[in-house]
Design a protein around this nucleic acid. Structure first.
Length: 849
RNA sequence: GGAUCCGUAGCUCAGUUGGUUAGAGCGCUCGCUUCACACGCGAGAGGUCGAUGGUUCGAGUCCAUUCGGAUCCA
């Protein structure tokens, strides 16, 4: 059924975007491009289904839905996957080999991996990502996503690279992007700069080492530090301005132990009197607080740690005494870890360590993909202004956030927390290989030194460019690297600098601006809450500077998938469920039901039970439809507005349609508020009442047991209910609903209109009647159940009592109740005061045959 | 340290702007081959809505405090 319908949808081009639509007819979705090099995960099925449900609803509401899906195949995850998959590593110094083929099997030891040129490496990246993307597309098709696959893009393809470079150049020209030499968070394993958004704080054991500096009179001033190895990089001591203990020292000079460097004692409010001894050493640079102090107190720079994570081999010139220089030689060239040991040994040897190091656990900054703590090094990098250094821009970006409707609303707090906590501009240059090149060149002066202040920019018509293989405009390739010539920028852009442009890339910005204005700003950005600070925020930043606009008017934040024990699913825990297996086991509609019954933003357990319910619902829908259609119900029986309304004569049938009218109204409202889960719940609850009570009650009439007019009334109600129910369920259960639709209707339910409550205005009766009759039915069934007899056992007589109004309602459906319960006679008694509920008593059952 | 979410039946959750005896599904118990459906049908049991205090004629819902769980930011 699923393959057949998927093929039909493709042939019928159901999900193709109508490019001629005007902006107000369009509903556009900026979907997350999955990392194609990542593994398929049930979380993909979960969140992508939630978006698809919304897309299908909007399509049925008459919107021209722009629903593209791209692939994020740019950046480090791809590099890593290619390295491990083929057993190669990128060495930019290698020449390009046009006939290169990777090893059959990757070598076990990383040292034996092939070292290949950047161009060869990138070719492998492109080859493997195409294969990976196919696997994703297959899954998403199988899931029934109503994506327009013609509108796909890859974040590394020519158009994406051009868009990324174009946006960068515009930001450079408008002053929103700039280059600067500044302290930068640095990952020593990947040898690349890292942005604040990529940080992860991890709890790590450490220890406070207590040792003294000395005043000019030789008095010790004890500091406590977790990074004793940075002592030779110390540029000052700092204490809180109000700290009485250290007030007398402010402005004086103290001398560092071991290295004999004189540093000043400074006051700054960021120094915490409660922490350690209350006075700290400032080293350039131990962490970002050091950077703040360095900047605000205008301290000198004494860089010790190189980009390889090792201490300088040559003794720094600021260490001048003989013993100081000797001591430094014990650290030269060592890793941070070994240098720490060496400094501690030195301190011990000189009897300077006061007590044993005090073990503590503290938060240490890591690159989210790295496994060594980040260092701070000074380097030249490119930045985009994101409000991190500018209060006005920060306020503007927070205001942009408020002009987006967040679903659920509380997720906006995360955005605002993040923006308020920014401590610098967005660092966008990365010292990696597989990415979008930063499209600039630098002139070389007569000494061969680059002029970073006046980069050479390409024309937009040249894009995409690769400055490391193409010469700068106005230069020939022979002048590369020659004094008086040029040099190309080697760095690539942060992947988020490209991903932040998915609205522009998918919307054909500057390729087809007429198209772009039809879809931008988008109506919806769906995504996970883990990337609010990255993808969501960076997209807002770019739209703000490039278009002076929000990128979208709504954002739907999906929750995480947890395993049934409420733990995060992860490969290392071995609790990952393979999507294909789940689809195989329960069917697509059942999996979609599970995803659609979870509210936005709610972390949700992977629950097979929920999928069983979904499967039951889908099967029930097929069976109930089969029943209705077996009665000879056709499209002609459907009541729409006045048409056919007079046929529905039975109060019970009118009650059903009244209840349905209410369901349509509520489901629509909830859907419009992105609460598809509530809409589903309401529809589902009505559906079960429909099958369990209404269909049972109406069977006799539908078979023609009581004449033509009552039968026609039943047929009209069944046809109408089925017509609306299929539409209401279509976004969540696209396969079962379309299967049934094609049994008796033309085209696809997914091309049909969403139902309107007004269509039932002319037949609506009292919805409460259905409930009253249901209670009577339950009472009678209970009597039989208590008597432990079959439900089809005949009833000789019984009495139903209740309030007048409800008894009246039951009376109007008495024929159906008698038929459904095999009752020969039912006595109705009105109780004026006593009981306010319907009760069934004095049930006399026929003896069982 | 700042912020957010969650705590309702054994389990998973729903309870819209405060309004009668708090709902669903699963599980459990009992019964039923009923002509759309045993991948089914019917019935039943089961909750002092984390705790305390307050606002109110009325609080699962609003406010304060507090306990427990999770997440984001610093």
């Amino acid at each position: 059924m699923e393959d057949k319908l998927n093929a039909a949808w493709r042939d019928e081009r159901l999900y193709h975007f109508d490019e001629s639509a005007s902006r107000d007819e369009v509903y556009s979705i900026d979907t997350p491009p999955p990392t194609a090099s990542g593994s398929l995960h049930v979380g993909h099925m979960f969140s992508y289904t939630q978006t698809d449900v919304v897309a299908r609803f909007q399509r049925m509401r008459g919107k021209k839905v722009f629903y593209p899906l791209g692939w994020d195949d740019n950046g480090l995850p791809t590099e890593r996957r290619v390295q491990n998959y083929y057993g190669v590593r990128c060495d930019p110094s290698q020449p390009y080999d046009p006939n290169y083929t990777p090893p059959q099997k990757p070598a076990k030891n990383q040292r034996d991996w092939d070292a290949i040129s950047r161009r060869n490496f990138i070719e492998l990246c492109e080859k493997l990502t195409v294969e990976d993307e196919k696997v994703f597309e297959d899954l998403f098709t199988r899931l029934g996503l109503s994506v327009d696959w013609r509108q796909t893009y890859r974040t590394i393809d020519d158009e994406s690279r051009a868009a990324s470079q174009r946006a960068f150049l515009r930001d450079v020209r408008s002053g929103n992007a700039y280059t600067a030499e500044a302290p930068t968070l640095w990952d020593v394993s990947f040898r690349t700069a890292v942005a604040q958004a990529e940080l992860e704080a991890k709890e790590r054991p450490g220890a406070y080492h207590r040792y003294p500096f000395f005043t000019q009179t030789g008095e010790p001033v004890f500091i406590e530090t977790t990074r004793p190895e940075l002592l030779p990089a110390c540029v000052a001591l700092v204490a809180h301005p109000e700290d009485e203990r250290y007030k007398p020292l402010f402005g004086t000079t103290v001398r560092s132990p071991l290295f004999d460097v004189d540093v000043e004692v400074k006051a700054h409010s960021l120094a915490d009197p409660e922490k350690g001894s209350g006075i700290a050493m400032i080293c350039t640079f131990g962490d970002m607080t050091d950077v703040t102090w360095w900047r605000e107190l205008q301290l000198p720079t004494r860089a010790l740690i190189g980009r390889d994570g090792r201490f300088l081999r040559e003794t720094p010139e600021w260490i001048t005494t003989e013993t100081g220089r000797e001591n430094y030689q014990r650290l030269a060239g060592k890793t941070v870890h070994s240098a720490k040991e060496a400094v501690v040994d030195l301190l011990r040897e000189h009897n300077l360590l006061d007590g044993e190091p005090k073990p503590i656990t503290h938060a240490v900054h890591f690159y989210e993909k790295g496994d060594k703590p980040l260092e701070v090094v000074t380097s030249r990098q490119w930045y985009i202004r994101n409000g991190g250094r500018d209060a006005d821009r920060r306020a503007e970006l927070i205001e942009r956030g408020r002009n987006i409707d967040w679903h659920p609303g509380f997720m906006r707090a995360r955005y605002e927390n993040w923006v308020e906590g920014l401590n610098g501009d967005w660092l966008i240059s990365r010292q990696r290989f597989f990415g979008v090149p930063i499209p600039v060149w630098y002139r070389l002066d007569d000494e061969g030194e680059p002029d970073y202040e006046n980069p050479i920019l390409p024309e937009e018509s040249q894009l995409p460019v690769d400055p490391s293989s193409e010469p700068a405009p106005g230069f020939s390739e022979e002048l590369r690297g020659v004094p008086g010539g040029f040099t190309g920028e080697h760095d690539v852009l942060d992947t988020w600098a490209t991903s932040s442009l998915t609205p522009q890339i998918a919307g054909k910005w500057e390729r087809d601006n007429e198209f772009f204005t039809r879809v931008f700003p988008y109506d919806l950005r769906p995504q996970g809450h883990d990337i609010i600070r990255t993808w969501l925020f960076s997209t807002v930043v770019r739209a703000h500077s490039l278009h002076d606009s929000v990128p979208w008017t709504n954002t739907a934040i999906s929750g995480w998938i947890l395993d049934p024990d409420r733990k995060k699913m992860s490969k290392s825990k071995g609790n990952v469920v393979v999507p294909d297996d789940v689809l195989e086991k329960f069917g697509t509609d059942a999996v979609r039901y599970w995803a659609a019954s979870a509210k936005l933003g709610a972390d949700t357990a992977f629950e097979e039970a929920q999928m069983k319910i979904g499967r039951r619902l889908a099967i029930k829908l097929l069976n109930a439809s089969k029943f209705a259609l077996a009665q000879g119900v056709t499209e002609a029986h459907i009541v729409t507005g006045e048409r056919g309304a007079e046929v529905v004569t039975e109060p019970l049938d009118r009650a059903l349609l009244a209840a349905l009218r209410e369901v349509i109204q509520q489901a629509t409202e909830h859907f419009e508020n992105y609460d598809y889960a509530r809409a589903l719940q309401i529809t589902e609850s009505f559906f079960w009442q429909f099958t369990d009570d209404y269909v049972e009650l109406v069977k006799d009439r539908a078979y023609g047991g009581r004449g033509e007019a009552p039968q026609a009334s039943a047929h009209a109600a069944l046809a109408t209910a089925l017509d609306k129910l299929l539409r209401l369920f279509a976004p969540v259960l696209p396969f079962a609903t379309d299967e049934v639709w094609r049994w008796w209707r033309k085209g696809s339910v997914h091309a049909a209109a969403w139902p309107e409550p007004e269509e039932l205005d002319d037949v609506a009766g009292s919805a409460a009647l259905l409930d009253s009759v249901g209670e009577a039915l339950t009472g009678i069934r209970r009597a039989k159940s208590d008597a432990k007899v079959k439900q089809r056992t005949e009833i000789i007589s019984a009495r139903i009592t209740g309030p007048q109004e409800q008894v009246g309602q039951i009376e109007s459906a008495l024929g159906d109740i008698c038929a459904a319960t095999k009752a020969r006679s039912l006595e109705l008694v009105t109780e004026w005061e006593a009981a306010q509920e319907i009760t069934v008593s004095q049930v006399e059952l026929a003896s069982q045959e």
